[in-house]
Design a protein around this nucleic acid. Structure first.
Lengths: 204, 204
DNA sequence: CAAAATACATACTAGTCGGTATGTAACATA
DNA sequence: TATGTTACATACCGACTAGTATGTATTTTG
């Protein structure tokens, strides 16, 4: 027999449903009543766990989105050869990505483009996630430079900024066209760019 | 003495104010009353010229956004050396871009990321714009290949998709951080990528 | 010049939304 | 076991929004 009250589960249920709703419709168009309908909770429960819609959004970013992003790109950051690792992650991600993920786009980029300049709380939290992502890649590139796997002349920070930016951009193109083929086509360019980071690279 | 009725001007005024409002807040969060307050028109005028909010949005895309995008990137498409032209446009655009444009982001990408998968009418129109942009770049690259200004091995379509995607992605990173410096940093990577399109390129 | 169509202006409506006030049952604590 | 706190549930409110109905002055047309 199940316990009648599980506040932690209730909170987590609300967070995950909110994440999906926000992923689908964006934060401002996300409907609290729709979330509650989905989880079979009520406003009383929601407003017991979160002060208002904005705080719910912040909690989604901190507790759902942030680990979601980190888990996805950690392999690159931890790898010995960052170029190999990035290309590998790119290929596996592109093969396993679902049409749904293409159609909805990257939840991080979605929120960035929606909320930057609108709400400072979102902006800071999202930028924090992007920063850690970029710093992770930059650090991996620096390590790659030390071990001779990455060309010495490149600027790790600029490289990381471009890699993250173009990943989000290519995902955005795929979302715009709602077509996984577009993702594969655009990502070829990123793969080329990454290959050119190797010291042994001689253009084809 | 000015005429009392200028329906064409009224329509244009509404379109341009709607473009700004949508650029600021997105389509769904754009307020018709805010637009009317801005132009000093009334609902009667608005609903005389446009059937509903969605049709106003479509008209903004077709009549304001589309030419806005085309004017910005035509220099690349028309150029003799597409790599030179792209780099030149990139540099001049980056120097003349205002903090406001950084903060609000690219109006094309904003709408794509907001409305793709939400409204088919928007999706088709926006994709049409992206397609023409990509095709223009691809065509320029092919012409560059014929005149020996661009390496033969590259795939013009994939290259164009990546260029457009990474431009929007880098703009998105800059918007996310609300920092023009981020745009410059990320765009260095794109410049590197473009340089690598030249047949004479020998990595630094 | 008369009539019809156009180009608005004003007032109103229905629906949705985030948020609140209040009540109550479960649970921890002493 | 009594008491206070937590975790909800229900009902309601005010704000805002897209959209409509109606009236009217201007402009075009026959």
């Amino acid at each position: 027999m199940s316990a009648k009250r599980q506040p932690d589960l209730t909170r987590q249920r609300l967070l995950e449903s909110a994440f999906v709703e926000i992923h689908r419709f964006g934060f401002r168009s996300a409907s609290l009543e729709s979330i509650l309908k989905d989880t079979h909770d009520t406003k009383g429960a929601l407003y017991h766990h979160f002060r208002n819609k904005t705080e719910l959004g912040y909690a989604v970013v901190d507790e759902v989105l942030k680990p979601w992003v980190e888990n996805r790109w950690r392999p690159i950051i931890d790898a010995d050869d960052p170029v190999d690792a990035a290309l590998h992650v790119l290929h596996t991600r592109m093969n396993e990505i679902s049409d749904d993920e293409i159609a909805l786009g990257c939840p991080l980029n979605n929120l960035c483009q929606e909320m930057a300049g609108i709400d400072e709380g979102f902006q800071q939290r999202l930028n924090n996630i992007l920063d850690e992502w970029r710093n992770g890649i930059a650090e991996a590139m620096r390590r790659g430079q030390q071990t001779g796997k990455v060309r010495q002349e490149i600027d790790p920070e600029a490289c990381a900024a471009f890699v993250v930016g173009s990943i989000e951009g290519c995902m955005g193109m795929a979302k715009a066209s709602q077509d996984a083929g577009m993702l594969r086509q655009a990502m070829l360019g990123l793969a080329q760019f990454l290959e050119a980071m190797r010291p042994t690279h001689r253009l084809q």
